[in-house]
Design a protein around this nucleic acid. Sequence first.
DNA 1: ACCTTACGATTACGCTTGTAATCTGAACAC
DNA 2: GTGTTCAGATTACAAGCGTAATCGTAAGGT
Lengths: 142, 142
Amino acid sequence: MRSKTGISDKGQDKRHGGDTPPERISDAEYAVMEALWLRSPQTAAQVCETVCAERGWSMPTVKTLLSRLVAKGALDTQPDGRRFLYTPTLARSAYVGGESKRLVERLFGGRAAPLFAHLAENEALTPEDISEIERLLKELKQ
Amino acid sequence: MRSKTGISDKGQDKRHGGDTPPERISDAEYAVMEALWLRSPQTAAQVCETVCAERGWSMPTVKTLLSRLVAKGALDTQPDGRRFLYTPTLARSAYVGGESKRLVERLFGGRAAPLFAHLAENEALTPEDISEIERLLKELKQ
DNA sequence: ACCTTACGATTACGCTTGTAATCTGAACAC
DNA sequence: GTGTTCAGATTACAAGCGTAATCGTAAGGT
């Protein structure tokens, strides 16, 4: 019947138009997104080439994840012959931004400074990080 | 029989002695930890006073979460009459550090600078954050 | 016209999470 | 002593996740 994921199925759009909580993306799903953020569109097989090796997954697993991501509205599909090409709908920067914000809010009361302090205390900052951040700060200030 | 959580039960210790992945703490569980990080030890009822209101939970829910946290080794109990006093085993800073590191690794290739850049781009930095971070940087450099 | 193959769809299944109701046994009030 | 009460323990159950096998079917080969 080939629907649900690809063509047709223009039923209730499940668009998360702003208030619906943006449908969290799980760890496994994130791996798939990464592959597609690096290059897109890709077929399921291509995605598998990238992730199956590094995570020890099999094709069906990738397929499932792709479907779930489509269902969540994080991926879009376009038919290409008899298969699908998958493209991210959710931009990497949006995702990353959301996750960062979540963390900062949950753990640091929404303030970035304590996060920074924490990273500093834990030697999690390389000298490059430090000078890079300095540079950014300078940029911000003028 | 009163075990599993409290006294006795010195069976296979389930200590995550370094290699076992530190047993993630879920969102709901985190709320309970927060209450105990603010003040400890506390009884289940006391914890509920704090969290039941703000999350709309009932006592049984809190009990479950407490048990799970004990099972995960994030909380410790000491008997007090016929009830238990709960105390965090996992320090807040350790948890926060772990989570921050996880995020930075997953999303920013382990480098803190891109995270910072991201926060900057998204106006997620208040002026106070900025000057605070400047101060910290100065401290780090000398 | 068939047969194989390579897709996506459907179904599966055990584990964790969120949320809670029920059970059991000890403590305290008489 | 006996009944009520209030702990923690046990059980429940639906949703989400990780991981996958299987099904139905359209494309392509021959």
